[in-house]
Amino acid sequence: MTTVLELKQITKTFGKGAAATQAVQPTDLAIAPGEFITLTGPSGSGKTTLLTMMGALQSPTSGAVLLNGQDLAKLSEKQRSKVRFEKYGFILQAANLIPYLNVQEQFKLVDKLSHTDNRAYADQLLTSLGLEEQRDSLPQMLSGGQRQRVAIARALYQQPQIVFADEPTASLDSKRAHQVVQTLNETAKAHQTAVVMVTHDESLFAYTDKVYQVRDGQVSLLATNH
């Protein structure tokens, strides 16, 4: 099995000396291309910390996060920023979109920054997510579900290897939540993009390949679908 992202004995400790708390216990994890995994667990269990370490937003205290075999901690902050821009997609709880850009301008900005023009791909993504009518709308004019679907399109726009989704359905009702995660799953599968999702919502586990339970910084495999 090939892996995109591999965690090797990573730990995260906050604070020093007696006040130190170990947010993540030594963890190994491997994610295959196109694999959809879920991290679940109570608040403060360390799942978001895990996500941010995989997402190159912070480095582990020990151990290594390998993206295509490359240790992220060995990159400069600028290079990590580039990894996030080119290889990763992010879907956050809310406020994923730039408030003063309309839907198609969100994509145009990415084109400008990467000196490319993938307008046709943006249109294709938006159409497949049922957003072709919303292309000229500002984020504030969209419903919560529409906003998260735009965020999915935005996260997938650069054909990343992995999409990180931090409670992407937190602000949605359950019907919308299912639609959004189902769409995320289908679209990611279609593009062979791996997804790491953090969620509390057990009803969403069915859409994912593997579910990991995080408790007191310990990661254990809870369920495997298929």
Partner: peptide, 10 residues
Amino acid sequence: DPLDAIGGAA
């Protein structure tokens, strides 16, 4: 800090 965007670091 981009971490602030992801609902808290802990």
